[in-house]
Design a protein around this nucleic acid. Structure first.
Length: 571
RNA sequence: GUACCUAUAGCUUAGCUGGAUAAAGCAUUUGGCUACGAACCAAAAGACCGGGGGUUCGAAUCCCUCUAGGUACACCA
């Protein structure tokens, strides 16, 4: 479609230049061309309103004049002036054939566009704080981050997933105090993360009454920083049991990371940051702390606290420095909730003193909305936190029940229940604009009808079933003469937009664009499927339609996989 | 107090680089399985696009302002 658009723009360019002496580049005309609201109004439209003022004529007359002077070949079957628009109807027979041939030819490579040339893109996502269980809040960064990871690979970049673990900070000092005091009262191995959280909450409460506990905690963290063997071993233990739990969840979700370098990793790399900032003369003292001043009325970015120790901003700056050197990134993406917008604004600002402009320009913060409950914010203290493992279990249980009710015959019902249940959760999260807050509603999340993950998976299953029952190897179908009908043309044109859906989704860091596109494809396929029989038709019709079915399958499978959703072939 | 984000049908949302009649899903009412999988499809009904100004031939979309909700703003991460 893009080629045709360009062709029309070129022809329009000739008319505009020769007839009106109107200065407008071909690219500008391409941008002006739009898609009509309704398919019945053609495929490409030129609104003529903006010419009206300059040419001192009515848009309708201009549209007529341009249209009459325009000479176009048989790639366009019809052109029509409606209101102030010229509507172009593409020769759908030619177009459809080209689109389907392209998809079948590329197979599961369809959708790949090499923009990145193998350059590295780092994506910092998930990044839980160890010794705490995964809850709903971590789900979004994990799912959005993973989608961006896949999308950038699809654009020819080399994605590097970084799990910037929250494995450092004075809370570990406090946790160690609690652990040593209470460990005998718990069976930690049974459920390490919840137990450690309990211990942490308990010691925290106690510390508020007894100042000396904070002193012990500070002491522990100091020892940790200095590499005290016993303390370090405890910290490592917390980290190990945490990682074991996280890996279990990541495995269910299908997430992988290329690096787990978290905050602790930067422990010995912050000195250099301080040194560079100091040498550049931007590190100044303020209220006892060492800070970098930003704007006039902006609060400064704290680099060293008044007691001389580092802070999370220091670690994030060390990470920018490290990543620019290690990965020479073309983009460096951070996926966190919008609570951290201000923080990253500061980090990006200060990093100008640390790394070359080509790196600071490519720092991207991707903020997303928060998950809240109907009753308000999640709170550990009030016991209103929803843990991811519970939610996943609910989703799997429910999908298993539905599978059983429907009497599906599948080999591994547990695997299928996982694919569908988790797919529903992930899709539900990704189909909305990421910036909006989500009010968590278990019934809504576990809905399987309408615009949901299971709906799209179900569409894919029907496609597989058709291809399977046809007994024809689709790859052996030769070119066929067939005139596609309305349902088919609509679907084919939609399939043609796959690459641009991927591109827009990645470039705007908005997986929902791809998610909504996949819904459109599935919905359009369902209409076609309901209105047209396939397997009982004569060979030529059957083969033509199977080509379309197969192409749709390629797009849906690839699309869902990019979002991190599995595609079962039976359900 | 300052800055940023959000507001579209009963509910959940899409559309936001301005363009033709504001588009879906859920819920409601109705129709379609002796056709390839009904987790589907079709139809009906449902919207002063938060309020008010402005810019424009044209505004859900851009600007101003007000309202409501959220978030952040110095040693937590």
């Amino acid at each position: 479609m893009n080629e045709i658009k360009k062709y029309i723009a070129e022809e329009l360019h000739k008319v505009l230049t020769n007839k009106y002496n109107f200065e407008m580049t071909v690219e500008e005309i391409v941008d002006t061309l739009e898609k009509p609201k309704d398919d019945s109004m053609g495929d490409i439209a030129l609104p003529c309103f903006k010419f009206a003022k300059i040419l001192k004529n009515s848009p309708i007359n201009i549209a007529k004049e341009i249209s009459e002077s325009l000479e176009i070949d048989d790639r366009i079957s019809k052109k029509e002036v409606v209101g102030g628009y010229i509507n172009f109807y593409t020769n759908s027979e030619m177009l459809c054939e080209n689109i389907l041939e392209n998809i079948i030819h590329k197979g599961n490579k369809y959708g790949f566009v090499n923009i990145g040339n193998g350059q590295n893109v780092t994506i910092d996502y998930s990044s839980p704080n160890i010794a705490k269980p995964f809850h709903l809040g971590h789900f979004r960064t994990t799912i959005i981050g993973r989608a961006l990871y896949n999308l950038h690979n699809e654009l020819g970049y080399n994605s590097i997933g970084i799990n910037h673990l929250g494995d450092w900070g004075r809370q570990f000092g406090l946790l160690i105090v609690g652990y040593e005091r209470f460990k005998d009262e718990y069976d930690i191995e049974k459920d390490p993360l919840h137990t450690l959280t309990d211990i942490y909450v308990r010691i925290n409460k106690l510390a508020k009454e007894d100042e000396s506990i904070f002193d012990l905690a500070r002491d522990n963290f100091k020892k940790l920083e200095e590499g005290d063997k016993d303390i370090l071993a405890l910290w490592q233990y917390f980290k190990d049991v945490s990682m074991k739990e996280y890996e279990r969840i990541y495995k269910i979700l299908g997430c992988k990371f290329d690096s787990y370098n978290g905050e602790a990793f930067y422990n010995d790399k912050m000195e250099e940051v301080v040194k560079i900032l100091d040498e550049k003369g931007v590190l100044v003292e303020s209220e006892g702390a060492k800070v970098v001043k930003l704007g006039e009325n902006e609060p400064p970015c704290i680099i060293l606290k008044s007691n001389g120790s580092t802070i999370y901003a220091t670690r994030d700056l060390a990470a920018v420095l490290y990543r620019s050197r290690t990965y020479n990134y073309a983009k460096s993406i951070y996926v966190t909730s919008y609570e951290q917008i201000h923080h990253f604004k500061q980090i990006f600002e200060v990093s100008k003193y640390l790394v070359d402009e080509k790196y600071t320009k490519k720092l991207v913060h991707v903020p997303y909305g928060m998950v809240r409950l109907k009753t308000g914010k999640m709170s550990t203290r009030e016991g209103t936190v929803i843990y991811l493992q519970d939610l996943i279990e609910d989703a799997i249980t429910k999908s298993k029940k539905i599978i059983e009710d429907k009497g599906a015959e599948v080999d591994d019902i547990d695997l299928l229940a996982k694919q569908i249940g988790v797919g529903a959760l992930v899709f539900n999260d990704l189909k909305h604009n990421k910036i909006k807050d989500i009010v968590f509603d278990l019934d809504e999340v576990l809905r399987f009808d309408g615009e949901t993950g299971p709906y799209v998976q179900y569409t894919y299953v029907r496609i597989c079933s058709l291809l399977n029952k046809s007994g024809i190897d689709v790859n052996n179908i030769k070119k066929i003469n067939y005139t596609y009908n309305e349902d088919e043309i609509k679907l084919i044109k939609l399939l043609d937009r796959f690459e641009s859906a991927i591109y827009e989704s990645a470039e705007s860091y908005e997986p929902s664009i791809l998610a909504r596109y996949i819904i459109d494809v599935a919905s359009s396929f369902s209409v076609f499927y309901n209105n047209n029989s396939i397997l009982v038709e004569d060979n030529s019709v059957k083969e033509a339609r199977l080509l379309l079915v197969n192409s749709t399958g390629i797009v849906i499978k690839k699309g869902l996989n990019l979002l991190g959703i599995e595609t079962p072939i039976k359900m």
